[in-house]
Computed example of a mutant assay.
Amino acid sequence: MNEWNAGPDDEEAGGVMRTVIRQLKLWRESAGLTQAEFGAAIGYGEESVSSVERGRRIPRPEYLEAADEALGAGGKIAAFKKDVAEIRYPKKVRDLKKLEAEAVELCAYNNSVIHGLLQTEEYARAVLGARRPPFTADQLEQQVSARMARQEIVGDTTARALFNFVQCESTLLRPIGGKMVMRAQLERLLEVGAFRNVDLQVLPLNREENSGLDGSFRLVRLGDCTTVGHVEVAHISRVITEPKEVQLLDIQYGIIRAQALSPRESMALIEKVLGET
């Protein structure tokens, strides 16, 4: 169980935790069990049970399953697993995941690393592991898990949204994580690029004009016909809703996409780089 690290403004996570804690404590007390007896029944120490009930630790799914069985809750405690799993991730990650889940189209340009929705687990761990100041071991695993969870919206059969990714060629050549990690990442790009709802393009380094030198960004088009932008740099994540700012990003993205290779040409370039890696 990881330490509880929700910020004071994270009301959603706080509300879920208060509800889960209240229910766990009520069920335990109704069963007439002390924290030590309850811990013994579910295979955890008294201190772990106390930490959960004081809101210092977030219970893992197996903790909730064991509590449900030991207390005869008939699934009422285990039902919290999905809610608790969501709030384990930082608020900005949850907000971004929700935004992406509501998208009818997502457009993204990246010039430093492969886009998070396209990353393999090993590549994501290498990218996040390079952060300075570094994450703790638990924080790193939490971040990697959160990034992998976001990828559920991209799929050949289950995804509803359309995706367009433009990657600067430099992201294909930068051997993050080493050659084997990069080979697997390039293979993943070829796999996702073949999905019917995904257009994957590469902006070559030999282009004399590159309108993406300002940095990476994304556009999310929502079902209500509105579009929002998102930029993330140096530990700062910002959602852009001001229409004029979004319009500028939209224009910029259209130019970048026109400067890039077509999806077919891009897949051929990725295959070429893979063969040379």
Rank of each mutant, 00 (worst) to 15 (best):
N2Q: 13
D9H: 14
D9K: 14
D10C: 10
E11A: 14
E12N: 12
A13E: 01
V20T: 05
V20M: 02
I21H: 06
L24N: 02
R28D: 01
E29H: 14
G32S: 09
T34S: 14
G39D: 02
A40S: 15
A41F: 07
I42S: 03
G45V: 06
E47T: 14
V49F: 03
R57H: 08
I58Y: 00
I58C: 00
P61Y: 08
E62Y: 15
E62C: 10
E65Q: 13
A67I: 10
E69H: 15
E69F: 14
A73N: 07
G74F: 05
K76A: 09
I77F: 05
K81D: 03
D83C: 10
I87A: 00
V93H: 04
V93T: 06
L99D: 00
L99W: 03
E100A: 08
A101N: 12
A103I: 00
V104I: 13
C107N: 11
A108R: 04
N110T: 11
I114Q: 00
L118C: 10
L118F: 07
Y123A: 01
A124I: 01
A130C: 11
P133R: 09
P133K: 08
P133G: 05
P134S: 08
Q139H: 07
Q142N: 14
S145D: 11
S145P: 08
A149E: 11
Q151R: 13
G155S: 14
T158H: 15
T158G: 09
A159N: 10
A159W: 04
F163G: 01
N164A: 08
E169P: 05
S170Y: 03
T171Y: 00
T171A: 11
P175E: 01
G177L: 06
G177E: 01
G178F: 07
M180Q: 15
M182L: 13
M182R: 01
Q185T: 10
R188Q: 13
L189V: 05
V192M: 08
V192D: 00
G193F: 02
A194F: 10
R196Q: 10
D199E: 15
Q201F: 03
L205C: 10
E208F: 13
E209H: 15
S211A: 11
D214W: 10
L219F: 04
T226S: 13
T227R: 07
V228C: 04
G229P: 03
H230Q: 12
H230N: 10
E232G: 06
I236N: 14
V239Y: 09
E245I: 12
Q247N: 12
Y253G: 02
Y253T: 03
R257D: 00
A260L: 06
S262R: 11
S262V: 07
E265R: 15
S266H: 03
L269V: 08
V273D: 00
V273E: 01
L274Y: 04
E276P: 06
